[in-house]
């Protein structure tokens, strides 16, 4: 595998991770996930509807865990305790699967992470043997704390969940990327392909998104666009961009041999 993304010792060919929420149906979910090329997909853990739709198709049938790496999340949890309980249930549900996405939200209006509770939950989950990928603020100091606790990846927001506002603070992201040894993935805020490319050009190890694909007019096509954007951004990062200059006295074409010189002789 060329230039793999390595998380908790496992290599992945794709650096794009996608959510499975907000799609019209499981067929569209599956088509979008396939078009994205993602190998890791996030899922939520929710109470079953008792006595309803006993034969309803399940997500596990649409996206077989044998083909995709599941990343159960703690979306909707506002305390460390709820998040830890949710992921214990997820591990039981997924037959001992221990790679998880921790997110502890601070308030229902912004869905901004509650970092004190996030740190508390991360510590407990690592102690219980979970491999924790953690949604967090773009504060480099708290990102380092999460790394020190033993998280396998940090996933700072680029902007608020579901906002599609893109990367609002590339400088903080850069600090997080520079300071951490574990993978840094942008999670939340990507709106379109260029946002994903910029995240990768900054040196992020990957990008996780859901709404940008699911809420596009054509989700399957956007999933493909995101695949290309993440690949292009990664290639650009590895290639190393030219330095920025306000202007340059060095044109790309030769300065010698222009026809203007011969014309001036004849005259």
């Amino acid at each position: 595998m060329k230039d793999p993304l390595v998380i908790a010792g496992k290599s992945y060919g794709s650096r794009l991770l996608v959510g499975t929420g907000k799609y019209r149906d499981f067929a569209e979910t599956r088509a979008a996930v396939e078009a994205s090329g993602a190998q890791i997909v996030t899922v939520a853990i929710r109470r079953t509807n008792i006595g309803q739709n006993a034969n309803e198709p399940s997500l596990l049938e649409a996206l077989p865990p044998s083909k995709f790496t599941y990343l159960p999340n703690t979306a909707g949890c506002y305390s460390a305790d709820d998040a830890v309980r949710t992921l214990r249930l997820a591990r039981e549900l997924l037959d001992g699967h221990d790679l998880v996405k921790l997110e502890v939200l601070g308030d229902p209006h912004t869905l901004y992470p509650n970092m004190p509770e996030t740190l508390k939950a991360a510590e407990q989950l690592v102690k219980e043997g979970f491999k924790v990928m953690v949604y967090c603020s773009d504060d480099p100091i708290q990102a380092q704390m999460l790394e020190a606790l033993g998280c396998v990846a940090v996933m700072p927001l680029a902007s608020l969940i579901g906002s599609g506002m893109g990367i609002l603070n590339p400088w903080n992201l850069q600090l997080v990327i520079d300071r951490l040894k574990i993978p840094v993935l942008v999670d939340a805020g990507v709106g379109t392909a260029s946002d994903a490319a910029v995240a990768m050009e900054l040196g992020c190890d990957g990008v996780l998104m859901n709404t940008a694909i699911a809420s596009a007019r054509d989700p399957v096509r956007m999933a493909h666009a995101m695949k290309l954007a993440v690949e292009a951004g990664r290639e650009a990062f590895l290639a190393g961009r030219m330095p920025k200059k306000l202007y340059s006295a060095a044109p790309s074409s030769p300065t010698q041999g222009t026809i203007t010189s011969s014309r001036s002789k004849a005259a």
């Binding site: 959510g19 109470r47 008792i50």
Partner: peptide
């Protein structure tokens, strides 16, 4: 009693 559902 929980199941896996679509989510981000």
């Amino acid at each position: 009693i929980v199941v896996a559902v679509g989510g981000g």
